[in-house]
Design a protein around this nucleic acid. Structure first.
Length: 437
RNA sequence: GACUCCGUAGUGAAGUGGUUAUCACGCCUCCCUGUCACGGAGGAGAUCGCCGGUUCAAAUCCGGUCGGGGUCGCCA
C-alpha cells in the first residue's frame, strides 16, 4: 500500500511503502538524506546503508523511486517524521542531467520568461511553481461553486465557427475539410442563444485571438469565463452579480491558500467593507485622470493602460478596494449587440479592473430582434451568414433582456498572485511567437 | 505594426577595445553521521546568437540578420 508524504506522521513506528520522484540528494558521508516528491509534497528518507546509496549513483533528480522503510518520529525532520532503514527500488531511472534545477524557486524575471516556458515540462515539478496552478484550480472551482449556487448552468460551446463572425479582433482562419472556418474569439453568440433556454449560463473555456499583440497581458489562446444572465432589470444587476462572484472567489482563495499566497509574495487583498465595488463612468475617470496627471485623455473612447492603473490605485488607496468598475462607455465604442442608453448617449458596458488591469467586460445586450437586424445591417453585416443567421433565431423567437461578462481567467490569476505577466499564470502559454511546448 | 532594450558554459549573472573570458548554482571525483539553498578539496564544461565591417587587436565599436524582453498601438 502506497503511503503519501502528508500521511507519514500518522504511521509512526510502522513500515511504510512510498513512491515518488527523487527531488533532492544530500550526501553527508555516513548518512544520506533524500527527498521524495509525490502529489502532496516531500518525504525525507534517511539512508545509512552504503549499498542502498549506491543504487542512486549516476541517477539524477526526477528518478522515479519506491522506498520501503520504518516511519520514525523525528523533530529534526520536516513534518516531524521520516523514513529509516530504507530499501530503495528504482522504478524509472533518469540518466541525463536535467537542464534546470527543479528544487529551487524558478526565476520569473521578464527577460528570462522564455527559458521558463522552454523548460516548463520540468519547472512545473518545482513546488513553488506548482502553487500558482493549484491556486488557479481553486479559483475556478470557487467561481463554479458560486455560479452553481446562483442557478447558472455550465455549458460548452463550439470553438470551430463557420466563416467570419462579427468584426473586432483578428480571427484565426483555418481549413475545415475544404471549407473556411475560424476559431472562436469568444462564446458570446452561443451563450446569448442559451439564455433563451436556461436564463443563466456560464462557460469556462478557451478563446482564440490572432491579434499581433506583444504585451504582458495578451495571449493568443486565453481562458475565458463567460457568463450570461437573462431577465435582468438593469445593468447594475449584472454588475452586482459579477462583483459578488469576484469578491466571493477572491476571499475564498485568500482564505484557503493564505500560506501559498504569502510565499508567492501576493499583495494583501483589499475589498470594500460594504461589498459594493466602486463604480466610475469612463467620463469621470477621464476627468479625474486628466486633473491628477495633467495628461488630457478626455478625447479617448476607451481607458488608456496608464489610466486603468491610476483609477485602480485611487480605488485601493482612497476606497480600500482592489476592484473597481469603469462604466458607461462612449457611443463611439458601441458594437451592434450592445444595449445603448440613448438619453445619456452611452453604451451600457462596464469594465471590471483588478489591481490596474482590465479583467472583465460586462455589457448589457440589445435583445430586440428588429433592432438587432437594423444595427447589424447598419454595421455592414450580412444577417444571412451562418455565423449570424442561427444567432438571430434566438432573438426572433424570444430573448429576454440579458447581460453578462467575459472574464479573463489568466489575468485574474496573474493579478491575484501579483505576477507581472499573464503568461506566468498559464501552464503552456500561446503567444505571437510561442506554439510549444 | 512602431519605438526601445537585451543575446556570454546546462541555468543565472559579471566583464564597455589589450595576456589563458570571471563568478554562483548545477554536473563529475574524493572527504564528511542530522542535512533541509548542508559543508570541504579538486575537476570538466563557452567556437561570447549568426554574418560581415572598422582596428595592430573585438565578447566589447559599426552595419545586417536571427532570437527574446518592455512600452505603445491593436484587442467581444
Amino acid at each position: 500500500m502506497r503511503i503519501l508524504s502528508s500521511e507519514l506522521s500518522a504511521h509512526i513506528g510502522e513500515t511504510a511503502h512510498i513512491e515518488g520522484w527523487l527531488h533532492k540528494k544530500r550526501l553527508m558521508g555516513g548518512l544520506t538524506f533524500i527527498n521524495v516528491r509525490d502529489r502532496r509534497g516531500l518525504t525525507q528518507v534517511v539512508i545509512r546503508d552504503k549499498d542502498e546509496i549506491e543504487k542512486l549513483r549516476g541517477l539524477h533528480i526526477g528518478t522515479v523511486l519506491a522506498v520501503d522503510g520504518t516511519v520514525t518520529e523525528e523533530p529534526r525532520a520536516p513534518g516531524g517524521a521520516e523514513l529509516h532503514d530504507a530499501k530503495l527500488e528504482v522504478l524509472v531511472p533518469v540518466t541525463d542531467e536535467p537542464p534546470i534545477e527543479i528544487d529551487k524557486p524558478i526565476q520569473h524575471k521578464a527577460e528570462n520568461l522564455d527559458t521558463l516556458f522552454e523548460y516548463r515540462v520540468l519547472n512545473i515539478r518545482n513546488l513553488q511553481e506548482q502553487k500558482i496552478f493549484k491556486i488557479r484550480g481553486s479559483l475556478t472551482r470557487s467561481i463554479r461553486e458560486f455560479l452553481d449556487e446562483h442557478e447558472f448552468i455550465e455549458i460548452d460551446t463550439p470553438k470551430f465557427l463557420a466563416g467570419a463572425t462579427e468584426g473586432g479582433a483578428e480571427v484565426f482562419k483555418l481549413d475545415y475539410f475544404g471549407k473556411k472556418a475560424t476559431l472562436a474569439q469568444s462564446p458570446q453568440f452561443y451563450k446569448q442563444i442559451m439564455v433563451g433556454a436556461f436564463e443563466r449560463v456560464y462557460e469556462i473555456g478557451h478563446s482564440y485571438r490572432a491579434e499581433p499583440s506583444a504585451t504582458t497581458r495578451h495571449l493568443t489562446e486565453l481562458t475565458m469565463l463567460d457568463i450570461e444572465m437573462g431577465f435582468v432589470s438593469s445593468h447594475d444587476e449584472v454588475l452586482d452579480m459579477v462583483g459578488d462572484m469576484t469578491q466571493h472567489s477572491l476571499k475564498d482563495i485568500y482564505d484557503k491558500h493564505a500560506d501559498d499566497l504569502k510565499s508567492l509574495n501576493a499583495p494583501e487583498l483589499k475589498l470594500p467593507e460594504d461589498g459594493k465595488i466602486p463604480r466610475f463612468t469612463v467620463a469621470q475617470i477621464h476627468e479625474m485622470y486628466t486633473k491628477a496627471t495633467g495628461t488630457d485623455v478626455t478625447a479617448e473612447k476607451d481607458l488608456i493602460p496608464d489610466e486603468e492603473k491610476w483609477i485602480s490605485e485611487h480605488a485601493r488607496k482612497q476606497l480600500g478596494s482592489d476592484l473597481v468598475f469603469a462604466t458607461e462607455f462612449p457611443l463611439a465604442a458601441a458594437k451592434f449587440y450592445h444595449k445603448v442608453d440613448a438619453e445619456k448617449g452611452v453604451v451600457l458596458w462596464a469594465d471590471l479592473l483588478f489591481r490596474g488591469l482590465e479583467i472583465a467586460t460586462c455589457p448589457l445586450r440589445e435583445n430586440n430582434y428588429d433592432k438587432m437586424v437594423e444595427q447589424m445591417t447598419a454595421a455592414g453585416l450580412d444577417v444571412e451568414e451562418p455565423g449570424f443567421r442561427y444567432y438571430l433565431q434566438a432573438f426572433k423567437y424570444g430573448l429576454p433582456m440579458h447581460g453578462g461578462c467575459g472574464f479573463g481567467i489568466d489575468r485574474l490569476v496573474e493579478k491575484t498572485i501579483g505576477l507581472g505577466n499573464v503568461k506566468e499564470a498559464t501552464l503552456f502559454p500561446r503567444d505571437i511567437n510561442r506554439l510549444a511546448p
